[in-house]
Lab assay of single mutants.
Amino acid sequence: MDALKSAGRALIRSPSLAKQSWGGGGRHRKLPENWTDTRETLLEGMLFSLKYLGMTLVEQPKGEELSAAAIKRIVATAKASGKKLQKVTLKVSPRGIILTDNLTNQLIENVSIYRISYCTADKMHDKVFAYIAQSQHNQSLECHAFLCTKRKMAQAVTLTVAQAFKVAFEFWQVSKEEKEKRDKASQEGGDVLGARQDCTPPLKSLVATGNLLDLEETAKAPLSTVSANTTNMDEVPRPQALSGSSVVWELDDGLDEAFSRLAQSRTNPQVLDTGLTAQDMHYAQCLSPVDWDKPDSSGTEQDDLFSF
């Protein structure tokens, strides 16, 4: 819950932080000083300027060897085509990944977070970031790969997607708890209302004896509580940590079903599988986004697919 609360507080303090972009060759504004600060901008989305290598189908939802083989196929196909790589912007948030063309600003792909089953910074092609997700059109699994400016960037994108998945799962947990509370309150309110109706004398007997209905007592009954809980029953509950912020979080049926399955089948359902080692994760978390744009010590960066 700490990640969720800190993310909400950060967004309320400075929503404009989320509009910064990394990996864009110096076009961005001043960047936060450390990885923790940038992680807090996830709610509205972190932007990464990358190059799209392509996509291939895979048979399993996750796995280092599986993704490595898929990336190898994608890279080989991209090299064989001889075409310049498409420059894209990857927007990562707890909602998922939005992929747009840098030149036309046209939407290429919009992947809900619950469809993503794996992401990684490839070991062999260490400047490549990739994720595996279920197609929104059918049940097939797709591996999408992107060329980053350097290994640090690939690791940073991988960690960002993993963190977005974690925050999304926490949102789901909060929403589920809130819905259970509202359902319980609604049920209790309905029981109270039913009890009051059972003990209320029939209207005919009131008229016969000349008694008047006590409207004041009726007004004191917990009807307002019942209506408050039943009027918006169809509205999706939102985490309290975000009250007053500009973010509107809505959970669709697909996300609810997917996270429910994860909660039942996995020990740590909030953790998205990645190909990063503990050492890689520690190294990337210690980086400032400013470091992502620094040239690798191995030599001059080449803006070309064939540089790796």
Results as ranks from 00 to 15, higher is better:
residue 202 P to N: 02
residue 23 G to M: 12
residue 282 H to A: 00
residue 12 I to T: 10
residue 74 I to L: 11
residue 27 R to K: 06
residue 214 D to E: 10
residue 167 V to D: 04
residue 304 D to Q: 10
residue 227 S to G: 02
residue 18 A to M: 04
residue 77 T to Y: 08
residue 169 F to N: 01
residue 67 S to W: 15
residue 207 V to G: 06
residue 16 S to A: 08
residue 98 I to W: 00
residue 171 F to G: 12
residue 240 Q to N: 01
residue 264 Q to S: 00
residue 159 L to V: 02
residue 72 K to A: 06
residue 136 Q to A: 05
residue 26 G to C: 12
residue 66 L to W: 09
residue 117 S to N: 01
residue 240 Q to H: 04
residue 53 L to G: 11
residue 287 L to T: 03
residue 109 E to V: 02
residue 15 P to H: 04
residue 11 L to C: 09
residue 282 H to D: 06
residue 152 K to C: 04
residue 151 R to F: 06
residue 13 R to Y: 11
residue 137 H to K: 14
residue 267 T to V: 02
residue 133 A to C: 10
residue 193 L to Q: 11
residue 280 D to P: 09
residue 307 S to E: 08
residue 200 T to I: 12
residue 236 V to G: 12
residue 22 W to R: 03
residue 66 L to D: 13
residue 234 D to N: 04
residue 160 T to G: 15
residue 137 H to V: 05
residue 206 L to V: 14
residue 11 L to M: 11
residue 29 R to E: 11
residue 41 T to H: 14
residue 23 G to E: 12
residue 250 E to T: 15
residue 131 Y to M: 06
residue 236 V to P: 00
residue 49 S to K: 01
residue 289 P to G: 08
residue 296 D to Y: 13
residue 160 T to Y: 14
residue 254 G to Q: 12
residue 237 P to N: 07
residue 116 I to E: 11
residue 216 E to R: 09
residue 253 D to T: 13
residue 78 A to C: 07
residue 42 L to T: 12
residue 180 E to W: 12
residue 252 D to R: 06
residue 80 A to G: 13
residue 113 I to A: 00
residue 226 V to E: 09
residue 137 H to P: 12
residue 265 S to M: 00
residue 227 S to R: 13
residue 289 P to C: 02
residue 181 K to T: 03
residue 57 L to G: 04
residue 73 R to L: 12
residue 129 F to D: 11
residue 213 L to W: 04
residue 246 S to V: 00
residue 64 E to T: 15
residue 92 V to G: 11
residue 43 L to C: 10
residue 307 S to L: 02
residue 111 V to I: 04
residue 258 A to F: 04
residue 81 S to L: 14
residue 147 L to K: 04
residue 194 G to L: 01
residue 277 T to Y: 03
residue 121 A to H: 10
residue 193 L to R: 12
residue 269 P to Y: 01
residue 44 E to P: 13
residue 229 N to M: 01
residue 40 E to Y: 14
residue 108 I to R: 11
residue 103 L to F: 12
residue 254 G to N: 12
residue 199 C to D: 03
residue 67 S to D: 02
residue 63 G to Y: 10
residue 44 E to C: 06
residue 46 M to Y: 08
residue 202 P to S: 12
residue 178 E to C: 12
residue 246 S to F: 00
residue 120 T to H: 03
residue 136 Q to K: 11
residue 49 S to V: 15
residue 101 D to H: 11
residue 12 I to C: 08
residue 195 A to K: 13
residue 229 N to F: 12
residue 199 C to T: 06
residue 231 T to A: 10
residue 136 Q to V: 13
residue 233 M to G: 12
residue 2 D to M: 07
residue 70 A to Y: 04
residue 133 A to H: 13
residue 113 I to W: 00
residue 110 N to W: 09
residue 280 D to E: 04
residue 9 R to S: 08
residue 186 S to D: 03
residue 221 A to P: 04
residue 220 K to T: 00
residue 45 G to R: 15
residue 135 S to F: 15
residue 89 T to R: 10
residue 68 A to E: 11
residue 252 D to Q: 07
residue 253 D to P: 00
residue 55 M to A: 12
residue 5 K to A: 08
residue 290 V to Q: 05
residue 184 K to I: 10
residue 105 N to F: 07
residue 54 G to V: 14
residue 127 K to I: 03
residue 59 E to A: 15
residue 106 Q to E: 08
residue 256 D to C: 08
residue 199 C to N: 03
residue 273 D to G: 04
residue 99 L to T: 01
residue 275 G to F: 08
residue 247 V to A: 02
residue 210 G to E: 05
residue 240 Q to A: 05
residue 57 L to W: 00
residue 295 P to R: 05
residue 194 G to W: 11
residue 158 T to G: 11
residue 22 W to T: 13
residue 164 A to S: 15
residue 233 M to P: 12
residue 57 L to H: 05
residue 196 R to E: 07
residue 63 G to V: 13
residue 7 A to W: 13
residue 76 A to F: 04
residue 271 V to R: 02
residue 129 F to H: 13
residue 299 G to H: 00
residue 230 T to C: 04
residue 266 R to A: 00
residue 153 M to C: 07
residue 109 E to L: 00
residue 232 N to E: 07
residue 206 L to F: 15
residue 72 K to P: 10
residue 38 T to F: 12
residue 241 A to I: 00
residue 237 P to G: 07
residue 146 F to I: 14
residue 68 A to H: 12
residue 291 D to W: 08
residue 31 L to C: 10
residue 125 H to A: 02
residue 261 R to I: 05
residue 142 E to N: 11
residue 60 Q to L: 14
residue 41 T to G: 08
residue 226 V to D: 06
residue 120 T to V: 08
residue 2 D to F: 07
residue 72 K to D: 15
residue 127 K to C: 08
residue 92 V to T: 14
residue 84 K to C: 14
residue 111 V to E: 10
residue 108 I to M: 01
residue 212 L to W: 02
residue 91 K to D: 11
residue 67 S to L: 10
residue 46 M to C: 09
residue 120 T to M: 12
residue 182 R to E: 06
residue 221 A to Y: 08
residue 266 R to N: 01
residue 301 E to D: 10
residue 247 V to Q: 03
residue 183 D to M: 04
residue 80 A to P: 13
residue 202 P to R: 00
residue 26 G to N: 02
residue 4 L to Q: 02
residue 165 F to I: 01
residue 264 Q to N: 04
residue 229 N to W: 00
residue 247 V to Y: 10
residue 190 G to Q: 06
residue 174 V to C: 08
residue 81 S to G: 07
residue 162 A to T: 13
residue 87 K to I: 14
residue 112 S to A: 00
residue 176 K to N: 07
residue 192 V to L: 02
residue 176 K to S: 15
residue 9 R to L: 05
residue 105 N to V: 06
residue 193 L to A: 01
residue 81 S to I: 08
residue 138 N to K: 12
residue 88 V to L: 15
residue 293 D to F: 03
